[in-house]
Computed example of a mutant assay.
Amino acid sequence: MVTVLLDPGHGGTDGGAGTAPYLEKTRNLEVASKVRDYLLSTFVVNVIMSRTTDKTVSLSARTNLANQQGVDYFLSIHHNSGTPSARGYEDFTYINISDTSTSDRIRNAIHTEVVNRVLGKYGLPNRGKKKANFHVVRESNMPSALLEIGFVSNTSDQRLIANPAFYNDMAVAIGEGVAKGLGLVRKKSTAATPSPSAPSIAPSKTFYRVQVGAYKERTNATAMQTRLKSAGFPTVLSSSNGIYRVQIGAYGNKDNATTMERRLRSAGFPVFVYQV
């Protein structure tokens, strides 16, 4: 099975750019967690995270993990900082590789999905596809890229960062780009197909499911359940394809799902909302 390592930049004593509520280390983990959940729920893939909590992880520890595990793709997720007027999305591969490399091919797929699904919709400028000498793209032995989602130092980008729908759309775009670049297999729907003789029925109602984590180990899922219950959130644990998902509920009204997502984020939980 294809394995992807998602690397939420910074963490622990290294806060990255910005200040709360736009502190980079926190926002990086939020986006990376959403990408992980989308990949695991949509595609046949294994996902490793360089960190899942607010802990300090050195640059060498991140690439060592990827190299030791022999992952197929390394993706580092960051937010940018600069002058107050600087804003937008950009992504990077290693400066010494060719434009026809596997890293560039996969990065191009991600970039295209982000442009088509997110940038125009939210008016976020496209700063382009770039190359740099960043440690994580230089020292990883597999194809890799680093994404800069937006500028925590720009008020317009801050408004997007604070919008739950923006992060959800960005996670889907990144996930779809990774899937296209790596040729991931999309999971089949579990919905039963009625036989030709069966009477026709109205289409099922659309629901918006609020999910807090997807885990390969049941103990990790139940630990998250315990944390949520202690914070006053009722949870449901479901499993499929060897993945345990911790869910808060399914809402027929998207606004209700978004309200719950904001509550969970305010309580410090990584959240992913998707349509079923």
Rank of each mutant, 00 (worst) to 15 (best):
V236Q: 15
R36Q: 08
S41M: 13
N154I: 01
A257T: 07
K205V: 15
A250W: 07
K25R: 10
M260E: 15
E148A: 08
V172C: 00
T226Q: 15
V115Q: 05
M260V: 12
G120S: 05
V35N: 02
K131M: 04
N108R: 10
M224T: 10
V210R: 00
L5V: 15
A145M: 02
A165R: 03
S197D: 15
F74H: 06
T222D: 14
L264M: 05
T26H: 10
A202M: 14
M49F: 01
M224Q: 10
T193G: 06
N116G: 07
A20R: 09
T235H: 03
Y22N: 00
V172E: 00
G177R: 08
N64R: 14
T206F: 03
M170Y: 13
S197G: 15
D255P: 11
N116P: 05
H135V: 01
S41I: 06
K254P: 10
D37E: 08
A202R: 14
G15Y: 04
V276F: 15
P164D: 05
E148N: 08
T112D: 11
A132I: 07
D91P: 03
A109D: 03
E30D: 12
R127A: 11
D14R: 14
L65Y: 11
V57L: 07
G252T: 08
L124Y: 06
F134V: 01
Y22H: 04
H111I: 01
K205R: 14
S85V: 09
V4C: 04
G18F: 04
A223W: 07
L5A: 12
N141P: 11
